[in-house]
Nucleic acid binder design. Structure first.
Lengths: 187, 187
DNA sequence: CTAGACATGTAACGCGTTACATGATTAT
DNA sequence: ATAATCATGTAACGCGTTACATGTCTAG
C-alpha cells in the first residue's frame, strides 16, 4: 500500500460522488475552494494515473459522441476501502498542528462514503482533540507574548483564534448530526 | 532574482530578529507553530544554502568555545530589501484563496522589518480583500448547498467561517495598531 | 479557415520528506 | 567506554508547478 497524496485523496473523494474525467475534475478544482489542492493538468493527470496504477480507480473510455476521447474514472472496491480507511483514521494532535486541511478534506465526503454516524464520530473526536490542544497553544502565547512584537503576537493569536473557530464549528456541526439522527425537520 | 520558498521566507524573517544557526532555527520550528513550515534538517540546511547562494543571508563560523563548529546566519542588505518587498506586496484575491498562511507569515515580522505603519496598512488591505472575497464564497455556498450532502456543506461552511474569523481578527488587530499610534496605554 | 472550447497528456525543475552519515562534546 | 546532546550535512524519492504539445469538434 503506497501513500496517497492529498490531491489523490481529493480526486478519489470526488470520484465517489460520480464517475468523472480528468477534465471534469479540473473544472471542479478551478471553480470551488477544493482548488486549494492544485488545479493544473500537470498534477491531476499524473495523479489519476498513479491511482489507476495502484488499482484504486479504473478509467474507461466514455464512448460519448463527438469530441476527443474522454476517460471517465470511478473508484474500485479497493479504492473505496482505502479511502474509507483514510477517512476514519484516528485524529492526532499532529493532524491538528500540521494537516488541518487534510482533516477537513476527510470530513467533506463523510456522508457519501462513511455515513452520518461516522461523520458524527469524526466531529466529536475532533472536538476532543481541539480541547486538548488549545490550552497548550494558549499557554505558548501567554508565555512568549512579553518578548514578542505586536505583529508576531497577533499572528500567533490568529492561529489560536482559528482553532477556536474550528472548535465552535465542530460543535455546531455535531448538533446538526444529532438533530438529523432524531429524525428532525431542519437540514 | 530567484523565487524564495515559504520556508526560505520564514528563515529570512527569523534571521531578521537575531543571528541564528541552522540548529537554532530548527529548534524554533520544532517548538512553535512556525513548525508548519517544515522542521527537518533536510529542508532547513539546503534552504539556508540557497539563501546564501542568492546573497540574501551570510553565514559566519561562530568561534564560540566547545562543541562543533556553528554557522550563524544573518540577512544581508539585499536579503533585507527582498524580504521587505515580499512583505509589502499588494494582497490579491489569489493570496487569500491559496496562500493564507503566506499572508500570515508576511504579517508576523512586520514590526521588526517594515514598521507598525506598514503593519496597519497590511491589515486594512487584508480587511478590504476579505470583504470583497467573502460574498462570493457565501454565494457559492448558497447556490450549491441544495445539491450537497450535509458533510460537504459543513466543510464549505467551515471555510467561510475561517475567513470571517480572519476578518474579525484583522479588524481587531487594526484597532490595536491605531491605539498604539495614538501613544495609548494598552498593548 | 481560424479561433476557441474541449480533453489529455509530457518534460524540466524545485523543493520538502525521510532516512542516514558524521563529528564534537558532556554526562554516566 | 557509551550514550546522549549538540550541530551540520547528504542522497533518494515523490510530487506539485510551469510550460508546452497534441488532437478534436464547433462557431463565426
Amino acid at each position: 500500500m503506497k501513500e496517497i497524496s492529498l490531491l489523490g485523496h481529493a480526486l478519489l473523494g470526488l470520484l465517489h460522488q460520480e464517475a468523472r474525467s480528468g477534465y471534469d475534475l479540473r473544472k471542479i478544482f478551478a471553480s470551488t475552494p477544493m482548488g486549494t489542492f492544485s488545479d493544473s493538468p500537470g498534477a491531476i493527470y499524473p495523479a489519476l494515473q498513479r491511482l489507476e496504477n495502484q488499482g484504486l480507480v479504473r478509467g474507461q473510455l466514455h464512448p460519448t459522441s463527438g469530441r476527443r476521447r474522454r476517460r471517465v474514472f470511478r473508484p474500485t472496491a479497493s479504492g473505496k476501502r482505502s479511502f474509507r480507511a483514510w477517512q476514519t483514521r484516528a485524529i492526532s494532535q499532529d493532524d491538528l498542528k500540521h494537516r488541518a486541511d487534510e482533516l477537513m478534506l476527510r470530513f467533506s465526503f463523510m456522508d457519501e462514503t462513511a455515513g452520518p454516524a461516522q461523520a458524527a464520530r469524526f466531529l466529536s473526536s475532533l472536538s476532543r482533540e481541539l480541547r486538548r490542544y488549545l490550552p497548550s497553544l494558549r499557554q505558548l502565547l501567554k508565555s512568549n507574548a512579553s518578548q514578542m512584537r505586536l505583529s508576531g503576537r497577533l499572528a500567533l493569536e490568529s492561529g489560536v483564534r482559528s482553532y477556536e473557530e474550528l472548535l465552535r464549528w465542530s460543535r455546531s456541526s455535531l448538533t446538526k448530526y444529532a438533530r438529523k439522527k432524531k429524525g428532525g425537520r431542519r437540514t
